[in-house]
């Protein structure tokens, strides 16, 4: 299924169209109205990223709105060569991660909370015919597993899988290069696999993804 919030935003980090530069210039001169189209353009991305990072709808709404307000107040420090979104993303991620650290939300991604909250949707028609029970279990454990990743690995998983960003877009948003993005993704997925394996019953966990590869690189 290619619908859903994460699949429609290929163009989200197009760094700097002329219109956006003009709007930002007007914001710098104190126009609040000029900030409205910018918020409307990026609000969904901001909300879903925050939801992925903190795992709770109310907090995601709160933190994403806070990030926009902070961005507007600090708009003079935005370097126009970065484009709005990568700069804004730094504000958003810092808010989300410091929120998680402050509240010590250890189980922010517990599936009970997220499904009750209605923040996560499962696609039952997408299940693999082979071993569906095993994969179903893993889907249940996925959010908890993502919640256990460290910050830099969690964000690449969220940006890639739930915002469908390309490697170039991710590199821009993370102020890094494509090579680093790729290696973080590799390591994040390795860790995710390990956590999902550990979550499973000890007797069957080795078969979950097969034997782990020896000598995987570390980042």
């Amino acid at each position: 299924m290619e619908t859903g919030p994460g699949k429609e935003t290929k163009e989200m980090t197009q760094s700097c169209c002329i219109e956006e530069v003009e709007l930002i210039e007007r914001c710098r001169r104190g126009s609040r109205g000029a900030f409205e189209p910018i918020v409307e353009k990026y609000m969904k991305d901001a909300y879903y990223i925050a939801l992925g990072l903190v795992g709770n709808r109310e907090d995601a709404l709160d933190l994403s709105q806070e990030a926009f307000a902070k961005a507007y107040i600090n708009i003079s420090s935005l370097n126009s060569k970065w484009g709005f979104f990568p700069w804004f993303y730094q504000i958003l991620r810092n808010l989300c991660f410091s929120h998680l650290r402050k509240r010590k939300v250890r189980r922010a991604h517990s599936i009970e909370q997220l499904t009750e909250d209605g923040a996560v949707a499962f696609e039952s028609d997408c299940e693999s015919p082979e071993d569906p029970i095993e994969e179903k279990e893993m889907k249940q454990g996925l959010w908890e597993a993502i919640g256990q990743l460290d910050e830099k690995h969690k964000e690449v998983i969220i940006l890639r899988h739930f915002k469908n960003m390309s490697y170039d877009e991710m590199a821009k948003a993370l102020f890094t290069n494509k090579g680093t993005v790729t290696s973080r993704l590799y390591y994040a997925r390795q860790k995710l696999k390990d956590i999902l394996e550990r979550q499973r019953d000890p007797q069957t966990r080795k078969e979950a993804f097969g034997e782990p590869r020896k000598g995987g690189r570390q980042e």
Binding site: G4, P5, G6, Y48, L51, G52, G118, A119, V120, A121, F122, E123, C126, E127, S128, E135, M138, K139, L142, W143, I157, H161, F162, R189, L192, K193, L196, F209, G210
Partner: peptide
């Protein structure tokens, strides 16, 4: 193994 993980992550979406 990675393909399987991707299948799992792709099937879970934010509502």
């Amino acid at each position: 193994q990675f393909k399987k993980l991707k299948r799992i992550t792709d099937s879970v979406q934010l509502a």
